[in-house]
Design a binder for these strands. Structure first.
Lengths: 184, 184
DNA sequence: GAAGTCATGTAAACGGTTACATGATTTT
DNA sequence: AAAATCATGTAACCGTTTACATGACTTC
């Protein structure tokens, strides 16, 4: 039994909440999981086929007018596999952050440029924070479920912390730059 | 001029600090950038060849005894390309966190199991935090450079925050579970 | 003499992004 | 009539991980 791909996991998870078409799955991802788990059409449609071939989901033709449409639903086996994955309490922190890589090498840059990196970084966190706060104050985005809000609170907490960190670093580096200028 | 791959960027950055063999590059990554930017031998060696072919690095045979060894150094063009990338103040937050995905769907799990996810998550952050603190208290890991320490402080700050968040969530969920049990 | 580390690499499989393509329906 | 959105997909490309392979030198 092969391990399910990342895309398979979001797809199964969203279908467990209710049946959807590939298009609707993508819409939902764009509104919810994209902040920590994205997926593109180029993955979703082939994945739905694979999952259907493996018997974890079932597609049913559900055209709207003359427009073709296939709605997928979890099978019993699909639910079993999803719950199996959910139940495994493995967890690996796997961060890939190009901004941090840049910052790591920022000594190679003239003094003010590194400050620019931090400002751009802070702005990016602020932008996401705004989006998350809008979701927070909007209608419950996944009705009757508690954990999406837990994850949302993580997002808000993390990006708030990150904004604060950038802020503090900017101030510290500006202070040190001023001191260095005075000493010279 | 094609965009440099992630692996190319770490490789160029580390070679800018000083010339190294592919093996030494990997050693350094394992001690430093792996916490936010990893790379495997399977990428590093082919990448060094590509970079050499493109004229961004130069390899020189530097055998140790009968053991073959190639030490690579940045060329002028390599340094130019590295600085070009460092100077671009673009920044995209691109998070992929399987743990959060699990948590997002945790309503499908029996009550105590979700708490388990949080505990495992906290433990993972604590483990990394320990490693980072050891690096912090150890000898300056990249001599004479300020920004590696900035990035280290980010790591310590982030994982500390994450441990705190897990802690708080665990308490909140336990409280709610107790209340629910009482009410039934 | 065995185990560990230095050193370099290849091949296969996998996963994901991007761009492209098509056509119907709905809204302005 | 045009633009936006619904809906589905394919193909090419890129990058990463993992497993495998080899051999020399060093340390116990």
């Amino acid at each position: 039994m092969r391990r399910l791909s990342g895309t398979a996991l979001v797809v199964l998870g969203l279908l467990a909440l209710r049946p959807r078409s590939g298009y609707e799955i993508k819409q939902t991802i764009d509104k919810t999981t994209r902040f920590f788990w994205n997926a593109s059409y180029g993955q979703i449609y082939p994945e739905l086929r694979r999952l259907a071939a493996a018997g974890l989901v079932e597609g049913e033709a559900a055209p709207r007018g003359g427009r073709a449409r296939t709605v997928y639903a979890l099978t019993g086996e699909g639910r079993r596999r999803l719950e199996e994955w959910l139940g495994e309490p493995d967890f690996r922190v796997d961060i890939r952050d190009e901004g941090l890589l840049k910052l790591f090498f920022a000594d190679l840059l003239p003094g003010e440029a590194a400050l620019g990196l931090l400002r751009v970084r802070r702005a990016a966190h602020e932008r996401i924070l705004e989006q998350l706060r809008q979701i927070e104050s909007g209608p419950q985005f996944v009705g009757g479920r508690a954990y999406p809000d837990v994850v949302l609170s993580y997002g808000i907490g993390f990006h708030s912390w990150a904004v604060g960190w950038c802020d503090e670093m900017e101030r510290r580096l500006a202070r040190e730059a001023a001191k260095a200028a005075k000493a010279s």
